[in-house]
Design a protein around this nucleic acid. Structure first.
Lengths: 194, 194
DNA sequence: CGTCTAGTTGAGTTAGCTCAACGTGAGTGG
DNA sequence: CCACTCACGTTGAGCTAACTCAACTAGACG
């Protein structure tokens, strides 16, 4: 079991890959540093998500707490041992990797062919599904800066698009991190895949 | 065994996921249609690559031949059966998914935070590694249009950046599809991850 | 010899970036 | 308790990278 405060590092990029995590509470970001000092956030992890099960020799991404978080920590070699001994465990591990691959492919679609407004709409829909069980009141645990590094845009552009979506009546923003989806059908029209 | 001419479809998006492929010869593209009629190419597959091993109920992407191709076709359920019966096969299948996930994460980095010149440089380095075993003479089997849909840019921009790289002496382009890397260290400086 | 497609180049437009300023709330120290 | 700082979020102004529209060339093919 690991507890982390906001901003704590669970795993540093480049560290030997010994453990993976199962998130119990809070939110994590998985990110890689870029040459120019910026970050690409590969994924956010929320309760019920696994992190780091696909690492080989070393972690190629850092894992940090976006919000206060608790997670269970498992040695990777014990997962591999379980997979070698039990076909059911192997299938479960395979399914985790498959789901991660599918999610990454969804990200490729969004990052490759969407403009900023569409990226943000897709992001909000994703967060609605993952944080609010598809509900309309989404309390974002991550900062604007995190969203910036997740979607590959500038902070000003993220902010302007939030403002624009609110001005258009698609969402309400009572607080910066509190999004209420007012017109889901519009948000889906803007951001839904493909 | 499947043989495909240039442009042939091996799998249509939405078809029930019954088979996967092991490429013997040629080149395939794996892509998803977008709402506006464009395509996002998720991956190219070359000899030695697997395609479609991570599909669940239905193929969420089409697979087409970019160049005349031959591939072996395996029923997905026979792979699952092999994985259930043999821990070694299960580990091999897991490794395929893991490698696919890692590749997809690399794509996220490139699509999220790179400009067109850097995307193209990264693409050429990837193709050098995969098609020419890291050598400098790369014969691209795919059209400019495919590169466009792989990197998420316009055909004019792809073309201009090819021209620019050639003008800068980084590559030579004796023919549109034949790239000779003249100054690899420069190309890596432009396009290398992170 | 005409037609068609892929590739390239030019010209003008715009989406999203950078630079800059400003407001606000949370800490922090006097 | 107040003053100060600092990070975060937001808004404005201007710039530029990349897009769209358009034209042209060269090779493929009937």
């Amino acid at each position: 079991m690991v507890s982390a405060r906001r901003g704590d590092t669970l795993v540093g990029a480049g560290a030997p890959a010994e453990h993976c995590f199962f998130v119990l509470e809070g939110a994590l970001r998985v990110w890689r540093p870029l040459a120019d000092g910026r970050r690409q956030i590969l994924a956010f992890a929320f309760p019920g998500d696994w992190v780091g099960v696909g690492e080989l020799r070393e972690h190629n991404a850092s894992v940090e707490a976006v919000a206060p978080a608790r997670a269970e920590r498992y040695p990777l070699r014990s997962l591999a041992a379980a997979a070698a001994a039990d076909a059911g465990a192997a299938a479960a591990l395979r399914e985790l990797l498959r789901a991660g691959l599918e999610a990454a492919q969804g990200r490729i679609l969004v990052l490759g062919h969407r403009n900023t407004r569409e990226k943000l709409a897709a992001f909000l829909l994703e967060m609605s599904g993952r944080l609010a069980a598809g509900g309309d009141a989404v309390d974002l645990p991550m900062s604007r800066h995190d969203i910036v590094d997740y979607l590959g845009m500038s902070p000003e552009t993220v902010c302007r698009n939030f403002t624009q979506l609110a001005a258009d009546g698609v969402v309400a923003l009572p607080e910066p991190n509190l999004v209420r989806i007012l017109r889901r059908e519009l948000l889906e029209f803007i951001g839904l895949w493909p």
